[in-house]
Nucleic acid binder design. Sequence first.
DNA 1: CCCATTCCTGACCGTATGGTCAAGGTGAGA
DNA 2: TCTCACCTTGACCATACGGTCAGGAATGGG
Lengths: 212, 212
Amino acid sequence: MSDPNRFQIMPAPQKSTRIQQKNRAAILEAALDVFSAQGFRGTTIDQIAAAANLSKPNLLYYFPSKEAIHATLLAGLLDTWLAPLRTMNPKGDPLEEILGYVRRKLQMSRDYPRESRLFAHEVVQGAPRIYHALSTDLKSLVDEKTTLIETWIKQEKLAPVHPYHLLFSIWSLTQHYADFDVQIRAVMDAEDPFTNAPDFIDTLYRRLLTPT
Amino acid sequence: MSDPNRFQIMPAPQKSTRIQQKNRAAILEAALDVFSAQGFRGTTIDQIAAAANLSKPNLLYYFPSKEAIHATLLAGLLDTWLAPLRTMNPKGDPLEEILGYVRRKLQMSRDYPRESRLFAHEVVQGAPRIYHALSTDLKSLVDEKTTLIETWIKQEKLAPVHPYHLLFSIWSLTQHYADFDVQIRAVMDAEDPFTNAPDFIDTLYRRLLTPT
DNA sequence: CCCATTCCTGACCGTATGGTCAAGGTGAGA
DNA sequence: TCTCACCTTGACCATACGGTCAGGAATGGG
């Protein structure tokens, strides 16, 4: 009953000790490793505990359940994941704004493949734990940006394309390099996919979107 | 010990009875449903059995283990999955050959989303059960087709692009509509993504690949 | 109609796993 | 140095799950 997390929603402003911060961080780091590699059901608390160098009961002292760890990771993830799209600037040059978004998104696949795979696991299973956020937060952001893209198209600053599918294509192309990494490397031998990917994708969207 | 599958590798040409065929098919169908939705670890034998209207022991009479069912599905899948790429014809018109491949691949995402998700589950987890096939069968097919694409590029029948990344982009774009279906629908409201996807993707590759 | 083969099932087993608990250790402030 | 809240753990529990088994029911070829 002396669980410190149970009352962590709005108690004292900064109740957590150094040990708490360190251990909670270690747990989340370890959990990200395991969840992203094996999925929720494929992951055991013991695996996370071992990866975090904690005993299982000790881990459960910091998080009330496996679900809670997973939920914490997902909650933190969505904001990070949407940030590159948020920063797309209505006042910038349309083509460059989109290319910039694509570049940032691809970089995220390179730098945070575990986060990408965690997300992939969740969505391919039907997004049971994150559907609500998708249909509210994500949807409203996408609605906003597709409207912007449509404006740009009407101003003939971009070639006419279906804005939703444009965004889907960006997501799929960039995340593929993280989520299907194994397949890509199985096919490409030693070559690092990220050597040529940015250039390829840049060319692709330049050709697609440059108005005639 | 009276397992009918144990000796099914090259015994009599057509040993299986009608009941066997029916039940094995029902099991594989049910298993595809469940595995594609929940992944291997997320699936229980009971779920498959229930979905196939069989008791668990009866199901295990037809397949020796959960692994075996999964393996059977994966084995059957890869060929189907590669078929559209195989039919890309060296003697056809380059652009049309590639657009045809893209179209066929997208159609597969529409018609066989479960198969796509089964594959996605497997690969995002590091392809533990299918890596070998990827680095042999898939790789050799890809090598063959990338060489073909490079030839077409040298003949200036296609705009110059990195052939591996071209294939990756086709895979990711098309499979995204099956694997991330939930996300897409959460964002698009009632509109069916497949209404406009073919047109979008067609435009994309036409612009990318049409030589200048 | 017989009977051998095939098909099916309830009951059961061992292990893995999520989670609990009582008790003992630890460290920072008084 | 004392104290108390914080931290850690071995042992334990209930359930879920993959898989087995002994035997009964259906089936179909002769």
